[in-house]
C-alpha cells in the first residue's frame, strides 16, 4: 500500500500510488489513511490520478476514511480516472465528496478563492 502525504497550501495531499484500490487492499488503505489523518489538516485531498480501477470495496474504504474524520475536517478527491469516476457516478457517491479535476486544479482554485 503506497500512500504519500504532503502539506500543500493548508491541505494535506495524499497521493495513492497504486493502480488499483480494490478488495485486496481496501482494509490496508483504511488503516494507513487513519494513521496519516492524525496530522491535523482541516482539508485532506486524496490524489486518485494513478488509480485505474476502483471496486465497491475500494469505494467503501474511501467513505470509511471520510466518516472517521471529525466533523470540522473534510475529505476531497482529485484526479479521478474515467473508470473510477464511473463508480462514483453510478453509486451517486459523487454527490458526497468535493471532486477536483486534479490536485493542481484544486490548488489554483484555492488561490482564486483567496484572491
Amino acid at each position: 500500500m503506497n500512500l504519500y502525504a504532503e502539506a500543500r497550501a493548508g491541505a494535506l495531499v495524499v497521493r495513492v500510488d497504486e493502480e488499483r484500490l480494490d478488495a485486496a487492499i481496501a482494509i490496508r488503505f483504511k488503516d494507513r489513511m487513519r494513521e496519516i489523518c492524525v496530522q491535523p489538516a482541516p482539508r485532506i485531498v486524496l490524489d486518485m490520478s494513478r488509480i485505474e480501477f476502483l471496486d465497491s470495496s475500494g469505494l467503501g474504504a474511501v467513505v470509511a476514511v471520510m466518516k472517521a474524520l471529525s466533523p470540522n475536517r473534510r475529505l476531497e478527491l482529485a484526479g479521478l480516472t474515467p473508470n473510477v469516476e464511473k463508480v462514483f457516478r453510478l453509486t451517486r457517491m459523487d454527490s458526497v465528496f468535493p471532486i477536483h479535476a486534479s490536485v493542481e486544479a484544486m490548488l489554483s482554485e484555492g488561490v482564486r478563492d483567496a484572491g
Partner: peptide, 13 residues
Amino acid sequence: PESLPEGGFGWFL
C-alpha cells in the same frame, strides 16, 4: 449517498 454507506453497492452495480 447521504447516509454514507460503506457497502451494499455490489449487486446494484
